[in-house]
Write a protein that binds this DNA or RNA. Structure first.
Lengths: 129, 129
DNA sequence: TGATATCTACGAATCGCTTCGTAAGAATCT
DNA sequence: AGATTCTTACGAAGCGATTCGTAGATATCA
């Protein structure tokens, strides 16, 4: 079984993935604490979600210790790319520059950010040649 | 009541909105036909969705004729901006340039597209000054 | 007119997501 | 040991999204 076909994470699952990407491998307790303030997630809720995410292949688990340790299977960039790609098709009909435009409008991007994006474009173009 | 607080459309609702943005005001029949190939949506399914979307304020209806005519309340750009903004927070922690980067990676954007995006950045920067 | 087609409205079934209560086992404290 | 705390596992409730069947009203056709 290849890793290439992970399902799109749901909203709650994405919140958990963000914690795992941020903290690295973590226990249920640690995930719960991290989500406590932002979402008020309860302990058994986080546990259940992580168990479901194992079934889906989104996370893997090390259960050698008493408190199991969970880890995201896909890198942040991979999942983010999947999500953007999804939105691009579903909402923009594949028009990347429309998406970028709306992203900048939504964010009211600063000049610094715009400059950063320009650098990215340069690198991107260099690579694709 | 202001129009400013429309809920985020669901997946099926977004598919309908795209038809309405594309075609302009349309009947249930027209929406169903447009979605038939892409999604296999049945007539009563489209009708029910449109009725739900009226409750949510996503569409409005002209029922003066026998076949009611539905129209999107928000412009495409407005909803798209909302969706991108949402994804930006939920998946990227607000980092716009990370989102742009993943969008370009996902799309393998062409040089033409990249050029288009550069033009956009210029205009954007000009406006924000 | 009678049959057929088209439309709206409504209810219900189904499914996935999210949350929580509870039970049972294991470790820790007194 | 006995009580407390922490953990995993599991089931189920609640909710929203999606789909469809059916009924009833209205228009169209033969």
């Amino acid at each position: 079984m290849s890793k290439s076909e992970l399902p799109r994470p749901t909203e709650a699952e994405l919140a958990i993935l963000r914690v795992l990407w941020d903290r690295g491998p973590s226990t249920v307790r640690e995930v719960t604490d991290a989500l406590q303030e932002a979402r008020g997630t309860g302990y058994t809720t986080a546990l259940k979600l992580l168990q479901i995410m194992i079934d889906k292949g989104l996370v893997q688990r090390d259960d050698s210790a008493k408190s199991h340790v969970y880890e995201a299977v896909a890198a942040a960039e991979t999942t983010q790319r999947q999500l953007v790609s999804d939105l691009l098709e579903r909402a923009f009909g594949g028009s990347a520059h429309q998406l970028v435009l709306q992203a900048l409008s939504a964010k009211r991007a600063s000049s610094d950010e715009l400059a950063e994006i320009r650098v990215m474009l340069d690198e991107f173009e260099k690579k694709s040649k």
